[in-house]
Write a protein that binds this DNA or RNA. Structure first.
Lengths: 167, 167
DNA sequence: TTTAACTTTCAATAATTTTTGAAAGTTTAG
DNA sequence: CTAAACTTTCAAAAATTATTGAAAGTTAAA
């Protein structure tokens, strides 16, 4: 496997993985490209490398910036804008943890809390609904606590702590 | 909020959450419905409750069974098949952990391993590709180890261990 | 200013994913 | 066996999501 093959393979894999954690393919591919690029890239560069349109590139870059894992940057003597990604994998993991907690788990917790707090009318089905959503609430709370812990720690806490668990 | 509202709210929320971890809405909704139902349900029951077609119900039930979180069951004196979900949240978490590792992380690890093993031709961009994919490989390996640990433990290990972490 | 370089927006289009429903398949009672 | 009850399959249709590209918007050099 040469450089170009390896690069394409990485960008593709990262692209399809993205859809699984809720960001779309183009967005994940742009991130992948920037992540392995030693230099910041312009919009033209990205469009050309990934064969996607200007509009698509612009919109997805914006989302990556919203997520906080891509930054705008300027290059001396150049009029146009350049983009670079967060290069620290630990920081990347922390950002993802933070955003997933905020976007997914917390709204779910809110609903689960409301649902498991309905009045118990004594029927079997109501009891079951309350019981099961309460259990899910506990589980989701634990998951959320972990994500927030990960999100708030210094750079290598994740690996160190998780490694202890794995032993 | 009465029983019906709470139930709909739960099914909807669980349905949209599903799309985020890679299973589709109908599949997640069927799971939600079975999860809070005190009795096994027939295909008719599910179709009627969720307003989805017979074909859709059949296909999604099959997938849930493949995932290992829904079981076929029979009801005395009834010809047709009934379905019930795994009721233990810990077991549910373990199944999800196992399946996510198998379906997503392990294939990714394989690609990352290949990519970061390309020959270093000395160029800056090759060095960067190798370095960054190696870092991602470590991170993903750690995540995978955790998931497998979760997937292989007895019922309440997850909560207990995670709780230690959170303290 | 003005104008060229560049970016964003968004309606239209394309691609993908989900859903349907009816035909084919399977199972079991009689 | 046959027929009725039930389930699965899958091509077509619908719904959803992603992408394009050109017009509108912005910025900064001159």
């Amino acid at each position: 496997m040469n450089y170009q093959e390896a690069k394409d393979s990485f960008i593709n894999t990262w692209g399809s993985l993205g859809t699984l954690w809720g960001i779309n393919k183009a967005m994940a591919q742009i991130h992948a490209l920037l992540f392995i690029s030693p230099e910041p890239l312009s919009m033209e560069d990205i469009m050309e490398e990934l064969h996607i349109s200007r509009g698509n590139t612009s919109m997805n870059l914006r989302q990556l910036i919203d997520w906080g894992i891509v930054y705008k940057t300027s290059v001396a003597g150049e009029r146009k804008e350049f983009f670079k990604s967060e290069k620290d994998v630990q920081e990347l993991a922390r950002t993802v943890a933070r955003e997933r907690s905020r976007r997914e788990i917390q709204p779910t917790l809110k609903v689960l809390k409301d649902v498991c707090s309905i009045e118990d009318d004594g029927s079997v089905k109501t009891k079951e609904l309350i019981k099961k959503t309460k259990e899910l609430y506990e589980l989701a709370s634990t998951a959320d606590a972990i994500l927030n812990r990960i999100a708030s720690q210094e750079s290598n806490w994740v690996t160190k702590t998780l490694m202890k668990l794995v032993k």
